[in-house]
Simulated assay, not measured.
Amino acid sequence: MRAKTIITLFAALTCILNSIKADCNVVTKKDWDGLEAVRVNYMARPVDLVIIQHTVSPFCKTDARCAELVRNIQNYHMDTLNLDDIGSNFYVGGNGKIYEGVGWLHVGAHTRGYNSRSIGISFIGNYNNDTPTTEQLDAVKALIKCGVDKGHLIADYHVVGHKQLIATESPGRKLYNKIRSWPQWMQDVSSLKQ
Rank of each mutant, 00 (worst) to 15 (best):
D79H: 15
H110S: 15
R2T: 06
N126L: 06
L17I: 11
K30V: 09
N25M: 03
P58S: 05
Q184C: 02
Y76M: 14
V189Q: 02
V70I: 08
V40R: 10
S57E: 10
V159E: 12
Y91W: 02
P132E: 08
Y127E: 06
V38A: 09
V160G: 01
T80F: 13
K29P: 00
P46S: 09
R71G: 03
V159R: 09
F90A: 06
I86K: 10
C15P: 00
W182P: 13
A109Y: 11
E68G: 09
S88A: 15
L192D: 04
R112L: 11
V56L: 07
D85P: 07
S57P: 00
K141G: 12
Y127G: 07
Y176P: 00
T80R: 15
G94V: 08
A44D: 06
V102L: 05
H162E: 14
A139I: 10
K150N: 14
D84E: 14
V40H: 04
S181N: 13
Y114R: 12
V56G: 03
Q164C: 01
F10K: 03
K61P: 01
G125S: 03
I20A: 09
T133E: 07
H54F: 02
G93W: 04
L137F: 12
N115C: 13
L192I: 08
I7S: 13
H54D: 15
A37G: 01
K174G: 00
F59T: 08
M1Q: 10
K61H: 02
I86D: 07
K61I: 02
N95R: 07
W104L: 04
I144A: 06
A109M: 09
K150P: 07
D84N: 15
Y127P: 00
I119R: 12
S190I: 03
D156P: 00
L69E: 12
I73V: 09
N128E: 13
S181D: 11
N115A: 10
L153Y: 11
R71N: 08
D130S: 04
I124F: 07
A12G: 06
V107H: 02
K163P: 04
R71T: 06
W185A: 12
T28V: 11
L165K: 03
S116Y: 13
T8V: 03
E68S: 13
V102M: 08
A142R: 15
N18L: 14
H106F: 13
K30G: 03
N89H: 12
G34P: 00
R2E: 14
M186F: 06
S122Y: 04
A64S: 13
I154F: 11
N18E: 08
T55V: 02
L69V: 09
G101E: 08
F123Q: 05
E135I: 01
